[in-house]
Computed example of a mutant assay.
Amino acid sequence: MRQEYDGYPVRAGFCGPGWELEDCAAIARRHRQTFEVPSAAALSGLKVGDLARLHFVITAPDVVADRRNPRAERMWVEVCKIHDDSSIWGHLTNEPALIESLAPGDVVEFAHRHVAQVLPVPPVD
């Protein structure tokens, strides 16, 4: 059975047809001088409405075979739900260029380790 949230499909399991989320925390540990990720405080402060940039590594063989294509699409999701098990759901805000199984609005499941950048929602005065 297909899971939906807010009328959009949920892409659970940190991957889907033709893509998988990159573990940005692991990349940052291996390349401390050149790859930064948000601090633990920024990640623990993530809330509904914030934007998180994720790296969707392309796994579709036909796309990967063309060396002109990028290794990953870097796209933003708007946090829509934070679960008790620390998994997070966010609506995709970008139109993927090469990943055909994703569309704007789709709900992508991710964890703190997948986040490359955070743009917090400004506080309302």
Results as ranks from 00 to 15, higher is better:
Gly45Cys: 08
Val37Ser: 07
Glu20Val: 14
Asp125Ser: 11
Ala116Ile: 01
Arg30Leu: 14
Phe14Asp: 06
Ala42His: 05
Ala25Glu: 13
Pro70Gly: 02
Arg11Val: 06
Asp66Ala: 08
Glu36His: 11
Ile99Thr: 07
Phe14Val: 09
Ala28Tyr: 12
Leu43Asp: 02
Ile27Pro: 01
Pro104Lys: 05
Asp85Ser: 09
Asp125Arg: 10
Ala60Val: 03
Phe35His: 13
Leu98Ala: 03
Val115Lys: 08
Gln33Leu: 13
Phe35Cys: 02
Pro120Phe: 00
Tyr8Gly: 00
Asp23His: 12
Gly105Cys: 08
Thr93Lys: 14
Leu98Gln: 11
Ala12Thr: 10
His114Cys: 05
Arg113Tyr: 08
Pro38Ile: 02
Val57Met: 10
Asp50Ala: 09
Pro70Met: 01
Ala111Arg: 15
Asp6Thr: 08
Glu22Pro: 03
Met75Gln: 10
Ala40Met: 08
Phe35Tyr: 15
Ala25Met: 08
Ala72Gln: 15
Gly16His: 06
Ala60Arg: 13
Phe110Pro: 11
Ala40Pro: 09
Leu21Met: 05
Ala25Leu: 10
Ala52Trp: 03
Leu51Phe: 12
Asp66Cys: 06
Tyr8Ser: 02
Glu36Met: 11
Asp84Ala: 15
Trp19Val: 05
Asp84Lys: 14
Asp6Met: 10
Val124Asp: 04
Ala41Ser: 12
